Computed example of a mutant assay.
Amino acid sequence: MTTLFDPITIGDIPLANRIAMAPLTRNRSPNAVPGPFAVEYYTQRAAAGLLITEATAISHQGQGYADVPGLYGADQLAGWRKVTDSVHAAGGRIVTQMWHVGRISHDSLQPGGAKPVAPSAIRAKSKTYLVGADGSGTFAETSEPRALELDEIPGIVEDYRRAAKAAVGEAGFDGVEIHGANGYLIDQFLRSGSNHRTDAYGGSIENRARFLFEVVDAVIEGAGAGRVGIRLSPVTPANDAFDPDPQPLFEYVVKGLAARGLAFIHVIEGATGGARDFTQGDQAFDWDAFKAAYRDAGGTGAWIVNNGYDKALAQEALASGRADLVAFGRPFIANPDLVERLRRDLPLAEPDRATMYGGGARGYVDYPAWSDKAA
């Protein structure tokens, strides 16, 4: 029977176990450069089969939160290289999550104070994280976006290709995960609630998915299909994401992804960080049919599930064949040795919410492993 602790190879990436660390934004990279604390943070968690980094902006325009890392500058790539070298020395495997936030941003974070960009000029009912002149963090309403011009879209696709190539070639990542979830730019194009375009990128499901497939093809060109995954969240309401009929939309998406030979599909089941049985539209989302659409279309990538999993639920998902890996998010914050704690059925520590976003070592790299705590 398959367990969390069995090895697996996903695409071109061999993994020691089937536990993934989900992306966790921590807002500790001033000037978008991951520093020494990031090296320590990820290395502490290198026992996970697959580390997926916090979401990382592919361009300055793609940034939506203060002090999140980037993939578009030499200092940023050099900072990430120190992280990946250290993780590899500890025996781990690490991919970076590639991010363009679209409308989930604030004009103070954009180049020249410009408006954030989106498929359509529809302001999101959501918030972002800013840091004031005194260094204190606060959450603020997102700014009103402007709709992307048709001739701007190829440039963003190229930003994805360039970032993917740099991530693997310069920063030393084992691969990349395209952030296609949680109401950010790719997801904004997919959903009719945020995409009111009337050109080739709006209207029909085929048109709304066009941007996603162009991005995927560009990232494959930059990194190689066996080192590319994508994260999807079919029904989450995160960041004002909404579509009245997500089943045919996301089945169309995974059928198209099946032909592209990706290393993995990473699925958030239900509401991000919330109820697993949350749904949108008139009917409950059929998760089995969603996965079957991918497999029946020839998709061979590993199927990673995420959202509120504990050990028992994770083991059931693997044993039943419903998943190939399970991603854990928040438990990794306060439990750098989460893999060992799961293996030995040890109690899990709870994270300090006051230190979740921004700051320094406190609440970031100072959570003890079980052996340290016992000592």
Rank of each mutant, 00 (worst) to 15 (best):
L51N: 02
P116Y: 05
L190R: 15
G308P: 11
L185I: 07
N195D: 06
A140D: 13
R343E: 13
G169S: 08
A317P: 04
L130A: 02
P14L: 00
G359N: 06
D372P: 01
R26P: 14
D159R: 09
D67M: 00
F242P: 10
V215A: 02
A302G: 05
R227L: 04
S59W: 03
A90Q: 00
A223W: 00
A16H: 14
L249N: 07
G113F: 06
S204M: 06
T43P: 00
G92I: 01
R191P: 06
D372Q: 14
Y357Q: 07
D282R: 11
G11K: 01
E316Y: 10
S192N: 11
V228W: 11
W99C: 03
L15N: 00
E316R: 12
F173V: 01
M98I: 03
Q63I: 14
D277T: 10
A114Q: 11
P246G: 05
Y160N: 03
R353Q: 13
A74S: 12
L232A: 00
N17Y: 05
A271V: 00
A259M: 07
R191Q: 14
G229I: 03
A275W: 02
L318V: 02
G169C: 06
E316A: 15
I333P: 14
S371N: 13
L50D: 04
S108A: 15
L346S: 09
F139I: 12
W370R: 10
A74T: 12
G329E: 04
P36A: 13
L212Q: 14
Y357D: 04
L232E: 03
G274N: 04
H106S: 05
G274K: 03
G113H: 08
A164H: 05
I19W: 01
S105E: 11
Y184F: 10
F328D: 10
V305R: 14
R343F: 08
G226W: 08
Q315Y: 09
